[in-house]
Design a binder for these strands. Structure first.
Lengths: 336, 336
DNA sequence: CTTCCTATTTAGAACGATCTAAGTCGCGAT
DNA sequence: ATCGCGACTTAGATCGTTCTAAATAGGAAG
């Protein structure tokens, strides 16, 4: 039961006042070089630890931010998280993590808990079906929020994401250039802004080419869901020659399902994913995908939040990363 | 700039004292039912938020724990994290997350920061090359620690992990039963307890069978590293008919590398992984692997920490999960 | 009508920092 | 000498809780 070393103890040891030590801790330019060195030595000797909890009480900033993701199994979110953690760590901030499991109720509890812990701000990837009123509530609490990957409301908060509409466009144009004319889309059942944006990109991209909409199939957002949807894809009336998938996890699951049904992806039917997760390079054939840089998105989100904390009144900003097509074998070769 | 609602405000509204409200917040049985209801109503009216930071200052418990992982891209750690978060969330605790990037220095900074934030305890997967003295230091700070997945020191702290020695044994016996006699092991360069345990399991399992050690190849812990190691595996003097891999990520990378070299995994050469990540079912051919239940390990680790926080003096406990073999096609068919 | 409980409530001092406003010190200028 | 000024330093209040020890109310028992 070691008694805690406090500012007072350090102050005594160094023969200065508590206030001066506090200034040293916070690296204020006000203290004389000599005093600073003395105090720092004593701090090291006594193994002083700055109590951020106590500090927050007076200063209002806790150097803590919360991150809410809907899911931790899709490595997209992991990479995203990794980017957030990286940037926040560099800014000497700490990340509180929680998983909403795509459940708005759970998300509410989490935000409430975060609030109790005095987080300075939150990076939120809103759960499916989140009530748009949530943003008002957060604003009312005046808790700075950056939305990421998904969005509720229109420009209600800062936002970091990737340009999925463009990503889908890249994929479609690639397929069309290879000669495909009937392209299907494997989507998800969950109604999120992410889904909307991709579908929008899909129809828009088709309109700019002479290819046609080969039909839309919906699956659960898991590789198993995609695996099972292979049958439905093969039964589409349009007999698509290519399938564009909501993300890489679904694409990989679909490829496995197609094989089960006796088709060879990349040969009998082209498959293309979105996100370019590491797993895209591990499937066979390797998966053509569109890189969305989740870690960069995470880093941007963290950057936006840091910016807002520093300047609460700057106008709302959106940070949208430009996607890049990664051509591999699953999209097959020119078909004629 | 909404001024914060404090205990005092609630107390005024309800016509009681601050102390009573505090008791209500903490669900003490001391307050009379009638008062409790009245206070609760006022709390709801004013949208009172319990300030856990201020609370911790007096009470010493922050209901916050820290998790340090060496990496966030391998989904093994993600699932682990997910298990931790789940259990902690249920216990109404919050998780501080940090990534050591397998760097002991960074790990030190993180622990220091966590300490500053007053975490009640830490779940640590020690970075490669961590000085065993770290545990003493943590103990000296009297910060409860549960180690997980990797371990420094011998039974120095509570530990949650999987029985990798047994997992490797399952895999080897499976291969031997299929007729393999020359089995190679694809290991990693990083010197961790995880590596040691698997190698130990490997030699021990071989000794119990009539198969021989087909050689050990080391790779970077990434799919690219494994991809590149395919050549080295094929050049082994023993000409192994099967390769057991450190984990699924390496196994998937190896399979891709073997294909590049013109071999068909599961047909020309058996490949088997460890961990049974979701990705094992997405490779082609699907990867035979040994399920280590990372989410369960995470949940156990969280459970152990919760237990230690509740009873600081209980003896050290180890929680080891029993692995299960998942047979798929990459281990091939009986070879004669 | 005391007295003694039990059940509840409370005043006031912590906790470990930050902030404000007021000091102190040395030194060159008047 | 005295003043003014810049460069530092500091006393003391304060943040929103919890804790301790003591106060109070309302009976039941004597």
């Amino acid at each position: 039961m070691r008694s805690k070393v406090t500012l007072e103890d350090v102050a005594q040891g160094a023969g200065v006042s508590r206030a001066t030590v506090s200034l040293v801790v916070r690296k204020s330019p006000l203290v004389a070089e000599k005093t600073r060195l003395k105090v720092e030595r004593v701090m090291a000797d006594l193994d002083y630890v700055h109590d951020l909890g106590a500090a927050r009480m007076r200063s209002k900033s806790s150097r803590t931010i919360g991150v809410v993701v809907p899911n931790l199994v899709n490595s997209f979110f992991t990479e995203f998280l990794s980017g957030v953690e990286q940037v926040m760590g560099e800014g000497d901030r700490v990340v509180l993590l929680a998983n909403s499991h795509d459940d708005p109720l759970r998300q509410d509890e989490i935000l409430h808990r975060f609030r109790g812990h005095g987080v300075d701000g939150v990076i939120l990837c809103p759960a499916q079906g989140t009530d748009p009123g949530l943003l008002d509530r957060l604003h009312h609490w005046d808790l700075p929020v950056v939305q990421s990957l998904r969005e509720i409301g229109e420009n209600a908060t800062d936002f970091a994401g990737g340009d999925y509409a463009e990503g889908v466009g890249l994929a479609v144009r690639h397929l069309v250039a290879l000669g495909h004319r009937r392209v299907a889309f494997l989507s998800v059942t969950a109604r999120t802004s992410a889904r909307k944006e991709r579908l929008l990109g899909f129809t828009r991209a088709l309109a700019q080419t002479d290819a046609e909409d080969g039909g839309i199939v919906e699956a659960e957002l898991s590789w198993e869901g995609a695996f099972q949807s292979a049958e439905k894809v093969l039964q589409l009336a349009s007999r698509p020659t290519a399938v564009l998938c909501f993300n890489d996890v679904l694409a990989a699951g679909l490829m496995a399902g197609l094989r089960r049904a006796g088709r060879v992806p990349g040969q009998d039917i082209a498959v293309i994913g979105l996100d370019d997760l590491p797993l895209a390079q591990l499937t066979f054939p390797p998966l053509t995908s569109v890189a969305m840089w989740p870690d960069q998105i995470g880093a941007s989100a963290a950057g936006l939040l840091a910016r807002r904390l520093a300047h609460p009144d700057v106008p709302v900003q959106r940070s949208i990363l430009v996607p890049a097509l990664k051509i591999r074998e699953s999209s097959g070769v020119q078909i004629n």
